[in-house]
């Protein structure tokens, strides 16, 4: 593409470059300062505290009897991971859910954004509002709606399927279907990602499409060679944020089983549910903190992999430096 070409238009003499670089650094730090200040004052304390607590037996209702226990929490976690205890099984549920829901949501959000950005579509404001609307319903309320909607005997979906002569799964009452039910429910939250893609699409210069047209490219070529590279930065964002989101997936599963056991049959026992149970139900906040840091490590590794590969597929028109 042409855009990347004329980057080094400013040629400063070597001597001034030093001071320029320093000035740039100072300016940059000045711009980062609100965040750096917030990090020190608001964010760092709880994060560091949680790391410190992960080496203790901190019990939330007996904070006074806190004791340093070294790596015991991590040892317990390791054993629950190896013998397919709570850690292993909840990681499994979370991974299965991630594999089903993240790719589906990203494709759907991108498809919808392209559709809702179409010249050929009348009433765009209405459609955008409609597709975004479910995001605005509090999660607890929308999960209750879906419980009713998906009910295997009186839910609308079951009635439609029965009307078509098809059997209906019992969704949230069937261990084999509950996770898929949550994936369906997740589709209702597609609005956020759709909006990000829509914002990304606004930044694609029209000239580029015309260039492809001149070259005789069709719709697919336009998508493949213009749209996709141009929105790859926000695609990257969506992927990473979805992974973080799944690692903390909680509310919907908690509404499905308010006792947090992951019912039906443990099929919705997400990683974060186990963490919540340990920390808040069994009061082992020390152990829950260790669980949080294990997930942190997993997600950081995923993020690093994404960042490493991003050089190959994410295209920054403004250059990355």
């Amino acid at each position: 593409m042409v855009i990347v070409e004329d980057k080094e238009s400013v040629h400063a003499p070597p001597q001034r470059k030093m001071s320029l670089a320093r000035r740039e650094t100072l300016w940059g730090l000045a711009f980062l300062s609100p965040w750096l200040f917030g990090l020190v004052v608001f964010t760092a304390l709880p994060i560091v505290a949680s790391l410190a607590l992960s080496f203790t037996n901190f019990n939330i209702i007996h904070p006074e009897s806190i004791k340093f226990i070294g790596l015991d929490n991590y040892a317990r976690m390791w054993s629950e991971l190896l013998n397919n205890g709570a850690v292993g099984s909840s990681l499994g549920v979370t991974a299965r859910f991630a594999l089903m829901s993240v790719p589906l949501l990203i494709c759907l959000a991108l498809g919808l954004a392209l559709l809702l950005n179409q010249k050929l579509l009348a009433g765009k404001p209405v459609f955008r509002t409609l597709f975004f609307m479910p995001v605005q319903i509090p999660l607890v309320a929308s999960t209750i709606v879906w419980q009713g909607f998906l009910n295997g005997s009186t839910g609308w979906l079951a009635q439609i399927l029965h009307g078509l002569g098809l059997p209906s799964p019992d969704w949230f009452s069937d261990p084999a279907w509950a996770l898929q039910g949550l994936v369906l429910l997740g589709i209702w939250g597609v609005g956020n990602m759709m909006l990000i893609f829509l914002a990304g699409l606004q930044g694609v210069p029209t000239e580029l499409y015309e260039a492809v047209k001149v070259d005789g490219g069709g719709a697919w070529a336009r998508f493949r060679h213009v749209t996709l590279p141009m929105i790859s930065p926000v695609l990257f964002y969506n992927i990473l944020i979805s992974i973080i989101g799944v690692s903390q997936y909680f509310t919907q599963a908690y509404v499905i089983d308010p006792l947090g056991r992951g019912n039906p049959g443990g099929s919705t026992f997400f990683y974060n549910m186990n963490l919540y149970k340990e920390g808040w139900t069994y009061n082992n906040m020390g152990y829950a903190s260790a669980l949080a840091w294990l997930m942190m490590v997993i997600v950081v590794v995923a993020a690093l992999v994404l960042f490493r590969t991003s050089a190959r597929w994410v295209f920054y028109a403004g250059g990355e430096r």
Partner: peptide, 27 residues
């Protein structure tokens, strides 16, 4: 600041930024 300035250690800082949303609120 993150998008337009050359700052030593910026990648590290950026990772720290993202790490701040990786811990669940429960802990």
């Amino acid at each position: 600041g993150f998008a337009r300035f050359r700052i030593p250690g910026k990648d590290g800082l950026f990772l720290v930024l993202i790490m701040t949303i990786m811990l669940p609120f429960q802990v």
